[in-house]
Amino acid sequence: MRSPEKRYLRPAACIAGAVLAMLTLPFAAPARADTYPSRPITVIVPYPAGGGTDIVARTLTGLLEKELGVPINVINKAGGGGIPGQTAIAHAKPDGYTIGVIASDISVYKAQGLADLTYKDMTPIGQTNELASGVSVIEGSPYKTIQELVAGIKAHPGQLKATGASPGVNWHIAFSGLMLGLGLDPSTVTWVPTQGGTAGHLDVAAGNSTFSTASLAEGRALIEAKKLRPLAVMAKERLQLFPDVPTLKESLGIDWTFALWHGVVGPKGLPDELMNRLSAAVEKVATSEAFRKPLEERGFSLVYRDPAAFRAFMASDLAEMERIFVELDKMKQQ
C-alpha cells in the first residue's frame, strides 16, 4: 500500500524502497507490451485536488494500482480551465506511463475559441462515469413541477433567474440546451453566474435565483433536508438516488439530456498493445463494486464505455456542444 503515512511511520522501508527503485529504474526497458507496466504510472488530473475529477481519479487509481501491479501517482496540474493539464496529457510521451483523467470540458474549448484542443488529441482508454444535470427550486417555491416552472418561464419573460455555473460552462450549457429544446430564447431567463454547482444550489436555497440546473447530487443533502425541491433530471432514465424525480422526456417530452462525464485517456499515438492493457484494467476497475459504491454515494452514475465507444461518444459530444454554441450565437445576433 503506497501511503504517505505508512511511509512516515517506516522511514527505513521508505529509504530501502527508494534505493531499490533507483537501482532498478535505469534498467527499465522501453515500454513493451509483455512487460508493461514495469514502473510507476503517472495520472494527470487537470483540476485541483478535491474537485469532482480529482475524486474520480483518486478512487479509480487506488484500485487500478492493484490491477496493474505498479504504483500510480496522481498529479494535479490544475488551473487555466483545465487547458494546461489536458494539453500536458495530449503532449506526454505515448509510452503508457503518463495518462490522464479528463472531464467534459474538453468538448467546449474549441467551440468557445479558448484552445484548439479536442478529443482527437487523445487516445481514449475508457469512460468511467457521468453526473447528470437536474432542475431544482427552493422548497416552498410556487413551482411544484417542471411543467409549472416552464409555464412560469413562458409567462414571465425576463423575470426568472437560473443559476449553477459560469456562462459557457457545464450546467449553463445544460440550461441553454433545455431552453433551446423547449423552443425558448435562453436570454428570457437571467443567468446568475456562480462558481460551481454547489454554489448554485446555495443561491437557490438562499432565495435569490428561481432554479438551478446543477446536478441533483451536488445538492443531495439540501434536498434531503427539505431546503430544495428537485423537479427533473436531464438524463435518459431516472437516477437511482432520486427515483421520484422524472426525466425531461417523461415530463416535458423533449429529448435534451446533459451530463458531465469523466474518463481515462492517454496521449495521441498510444500504441494499441499498451492501450489494450490499460483499457482492460480500467474496465475491470470501473465496473467493480469497490468503484461503484463510493461514487454512487456521491451521486455519480457509473457509465463505462470501451475505447471505441468512448471515442464515438466524445465525437458526438463535441458536435452537440458546437451546435449549442452556434444556436446561442444566432440568438444573440437576432
Binding site: P4, R7, A18, M22, L25, P26, T42, N73, I75
Partner: peptide, 21 residues
Amino acid sequence: DLLFRLVLHVPVPSGPLAAFW
C-alpha cells in the same frame, strides 16, 4: 528531490537525470 519527488509525488522535472532516477 527525495522529499518532493519520492515522498510527496511532485513530478519535479529531472532532465537528463530522469534516466538514472
